[in-house]
Nucleic acid binder design. Structure first.
Lengths: 198, 198
DNA sequence: TGAATCATGTAACTGGTTACATGATTGT
DNA sequence: ACAATCATGTAACCAGTTACATGATTCA
């Protein structure tokens, strides 16, 4: 149901589905990616539920646009959702499932390569977030103090992305260290064993 | 497709759906929760795809059990998946969507209460993870060095949970601080404005 | 005797993705 | 002429949840 509310939130200004998708990609994408097809379906349903109203407008460029705006009911639903408790979702991480079973490969170097590759992806993601942060802060003079209330709340969501991404990179580093320590211990142990056997 | 592979992973020892669910809840639950109904459906499909084989056994307690085990193909599929690149999923956070639009309430104290409530949930989750860590480490003498290869990889997934949860709690604290700073600035500013108006 | 646990499964629904269909306008 | 962008939508599929049906065994 959350995409519903995100769309209501973004529609505090009237927009078309196509516009909405563009705004989406620039703003909430980092914690809620969405496909255009899904956006259109939900807009339609929200209108049938009375939370949105739409009118068709000619476009300056390309075909007619269907522009949606909040109804009184839509705004009420949005505010009720904002006033509710923090909604914490289940989280699923495929790559952790891979790590969990990776002993099956019986190859600590494979695990190392895996973590290194993951680290690269995470560094990329962090850089993207930091870039957005830079743009956002520079538009208000470089300090978070200059943000409007709206911008401030949006900025907070960016900060948590940066925080967790940093923690994940730290986990990669911690993990690589643990693997090295383990490999060392194994090698030493192996040598001792061999020596004893001879 | 990940639940598929997780089940294959857990089935390195033959088990029934019911057993599997119990193991699930004790082990991979923190990064991949699953419902029993879903487990049964996927086991059935994996068997029809030739990745699992099953036989019915009488139970010591209750009705007959259908015990699944890996086929050669199942093991190959598991190993291929483990050998592939880290699979990083989209992440969706409803509570961040709430924060993102929360300026609509025009009430920084509401945001404060929201973050405090969230912090409490996160502290609970962290405590759960730490408890699992304690149990796991104490079973091998308190140090990660005593873990088997399998246990070691499993322990790593626990560590990332602990890391990110800690980062999220830090974000709550950082956020509460930012809000206080902002409220102070607003109050001071408001007083100045009022004074100037009079 | 009745609750808890063991055990397997189906059906209806939900929220998402990918692929496809259609077509106008703008700039090279 | 053709690619890029603007613009809206449908259909098929997929992975998950919730609710329900069924029934055996064990223990208080």
């Amino acid at each position: 149901m959350s995409l519903d509310h995100i769309l209501l939130g973004l529609l505090r200004e009237p927009r078309s589905g196509y516009d909405l998708k563009a705004v989406f990609d620039r703003t909430v994408n980092h914690f809620w990616p969405a496909e255009l097809s899904q956006v259109y379906r939900i807009l339609k349903r929200l209108e049938s539920e009375g939370k949105l109203a739409s009118r068709v407008e000619p476009s300056s460029k390309g075909p007619d646009r269907r522009v949606y705006s909040l109804t009184r009911m839509g705004r009420r639903v949005l505010r009720d959702w904002l006033s509710s408790k923090p909604l914490v979702d289940d989280e699923r991480y495929t790559y952790l499932a891979q790590v969990f079973f990776m002993a099956e490969l019986n190859d600590l170097e494979a695990t190392t390569r895996f973590i290194e590759e993951l680290r690269r992806k995470r560094v990329d993601q962090l850089e993207t977030l930091r870039e957005i942060e830079r743009v956002q802060l520079s538009s208000v003079g470089g300090s978070a103090d200059g943000l409007s209330d709206d911008q401030f709340h949006q900025y907070l969501t960016l900060r948590t992305g940066i925080n967790t991404m940093t923690a994940r990179i730290a986990w990669c580093d911690e993990t690589l260290k643990r693997i090295r320590r383990r490999s060392r211990a194994k090698r030493d142990n192996g040598e001792n064993t061999r020596r004893r056997i001879r």
